[in-house]
C-alpha cells in the first residue's frame, strides 16, 4: 500500500516536473511569436475582419504563417481558391511533423491524437522532438503542455493586436525573432558531429536562404526535403564502420 502510494506520488512529481519543463522549453519560442501574433491581429482588423473573426482565426486555424499570408492575400483582393492553395502549401510542412510523430502517437486514444494533432506547430514539434531525443521517450503530456502553452501565447498576442495594434507598430524592430534563431540553433548544433546531420543542416539552410525570395510559401518544406535527402544519401562513416565490423 505504502509502495503504491509512493509510486503514485513519484508519478505526480514527475508529471509536474515534466509540465514545468515543457512550459520552460516552450517559453523562448512563445515570446518570439508575440510580434507575429500582434501583427496578425492588427492586420486582420485592417483587412476588414471583425474582432471576433480575427480572434477566431487564431483560435481555430492556429498557424501563424498561413494566417498572415491569408490576410495579406485577402486585403489584396485574391480569391478564396488562391488563399486556400497558399494555406495548403504553407502548412504542408506539418505533414512532415505528423509522419515523424506517427510512430509515437498512433497507439494513443483518439482524443489525445486529436489534441496533439490540433496543437502540432513548428514550435511544439521542435520542443517535443528535442525532449524525445533527450529522454529517449516521447511524452504525450509534454507535447500537449508545450502545444497548449504556445496556443495560449499565440492567442493572447493576437488579442493584443486586435485591441491595441496601433500602439505596437515598432514591436517588429525589437528583434524578438532572435529567440527563434537561438532556440533552433540550441536544438540542432549539439548533434553536428554526426556527419549526416551536419549535411542536413548545411543543405537545408543553404536551400532555404536561396529559395526564400523566390518561393515565399513553400521554401521551408522544400529546403527541409532537400536537407533530409542529402543527409540520407550521404555516406555515414559510423554506419560504414559498423558494416565493416559485421562483414
Amino acid at each position: 500500500m505504502t509502495q503504491i502510494r509512493s509510486q503514485a506520488s513519484a508519478c505526480r512529481t514527475s508529471n509536474s516536473s515534466l509540465t514545468r519543463r515543457a512550459i520552460l522549453d516552450t517559453m523562448p519560442l512563445s515570446l518570439a511569436v508575440i510580434p507575429w501574433g500582434v501583427l496578425t491581429g492588427a492586420l486582420a482588423i485592417e483587412a476588414g475582419f471583425s474582432a471576433i473573426q480575427a480572434q477566431l482565426m487564431s483560435l481555430i486555424v492556429f498557424a501563424g504563417a498561413a494566417q498572415l499570408s491569408a490576410i495579406t492575400l485577402l486585403a489584396a483582393g485574391s480569391s478564396f481558391a488562391s488563399i486556400f492553395a497558399s494555406t495548403v502549401v504553407i502548412s504542408s510542412r506539418h505533414l512532415l511533423y505528423s509522419i515523424t510523430f506517427r510512430q509515437h502517437v498512433e497507439a494513443l486514444p483518439l482524443r489525445l491524437r486529436l489534441v496533439i494533432g490540433f496543437l502540432l506547430t513548428d514550435e511544439m514539434f521542435a520542443v517535443s522532438q528535442a525532449h524525445t531525443m533527450r529522454s529517449g521517450n516521447f511524452s504525450a503530456l509534454f507535447a500537449i503542455v508545450s502545444g497548449a502553452t504556445f496556443y495560449f501565447c499565440w492567442n493572447i498576442s493576437t488579442l493584443l493586436g486586435i485591441i491595441a495594434g496601433e500602439y505596437f507598430s515598432d514591436l517588429d524592430s525589437m528583434g524578438l525573432d532572435f529567440a527563434i534563431v537561438a532556440t533552433f540553433i540550441a536544438m540542432t548544433f549539439a548533434e553536428l558531429r554526426n556527419y549526416p546531420i551536419l549535411v542536413a543542416v548545411l543543405m537545408s539552410g543553404l536551400t532555404a536562404v536561396l529559395l526564400q525570395p523566390l518561393l515565399s510559401d513553400s521554401y521551408i518544406v522544400i529546403a527541409a526535403l532537400v536537407g533530409m535527402s542529402c543527409a540520407y544519401i550521404c555516406p555515414d562513416p559510423q554506419a560504414m564502420a559498423e558494416l565493416k565490423v559485421s562483414s
Binding site: A208, G227, Y232
Partner: peptide, 25 residues
C-alpha cells in the same frame, strides 16, 4: 525512418537560417 530522423534538423534550420542570411534573388 532514417530519412525522417533528419526532419527536425532540416526544418528548424530552414526556418532560422533565412532570418539571419538574406539573399536578394
Amino acid at each position: 525512418k532514417r530519412f525522417l530522423s533528419y526532419s527536425s534538423y532540416s526544418v528548424l534550420t530552414a526556418i532560422w537560417a533565412p532570418i539571419i542570411f538574406h539573399f536578394d534573388g
